[in-house]
């Protein structure tokens, strides 16, 4: 679909119009400007921005997106953990991501490629709370891309583990 869109329409304008139609009036082309510390910057091939070519999120902005809670074990923690955050798919929709691939970077420059197709309903979330607490850098915060490992055996693979990036700060949408 994306491929067709590029061939058939091309151009940012057309994509923007299309996205506006799809997303409704709330994010008509622009996102609200964050008021506190920026936790996440999304850039690259996106339709909706709130600063020049980028979409920047603070906690408040993130929390305006639909909240999702998942319970799961992780290999990095002890016992069942409760994570709350924004579904990757919702976030990608909010920014009007056009590309196929997300290049995600952590605070320590750990970086990994995640296919946009991972962003599905019931899929990974960008967690901002663990067990009801906001997460600090010391506890893999403030944002951690968590997959619901227990719900799907497919999520218990080395590739998924490598995509489970913590201390997430930047996402670049590419082709």
């Amino acid at each position: 679909m994306n491929f067709e869109m590029r061939i058939g329409m091309g151009g940012i304008l057309k994509a923007f119009v299309l996205c506006s139609l799809m997303c409704g009036g709330a994010f008509a082309g622009t996102l609200p400007t964050p008021q506190s510390d920026i936790l996440l910057t999304v850039e690259g091939d996106i339709a909706n921005t709130n600063t020049e070519g980028r979409a920047e999120f603070d906690m408040a902005l993130l929390q305006t997106l639909p909240t999702v809670t998942i319970r799961t074990n992780t290999i990095w923690t002890e016992g069942v953990q409760e994570f709350r955050g924004v579904q990757l798919s919702d976030l990608l929709e909010a920014v009007g991501a056009q590309g196929d691939m997300i290049y995600a970077t952590a605070v320590n420059d750990y970086a990994i490629e995640i296919p946009v197709t991972d962003g599905v309903d019931g899929g990974p979330i960008i967690a901002y709370q663990q067990n009801g607490q906001e997460m600090s850098v010391r506890t893999q915060g403030p944002l951690w891309l968590v997959y619901p490992y227990d719900s799907n055996a497919d999520y218990q693979s080395e590739v998924i583990y490598s995509r489970s990036i913590w201390q997430l700060v930047r996402m670049e949408i590419t082709d």
């Binding site: 074990n73 992780t74 290999i75 990095w76 923690t77 002890e78 605070v107 320590n108 600090s136 850098v137 010391r138 506890t139 893999q140 913590w166 201390q167």
Partner: peptide, 14 residues
């Protein structure tokens, strides 16, 4: 903080 978080992972991770 990052170093700390690493150690936390090693200490607590399954």
């Amino acid at each position: 903080d990052i170093f700390y978080s690493r150690i936390q992972i090693v200490k607590r991770g399954d």
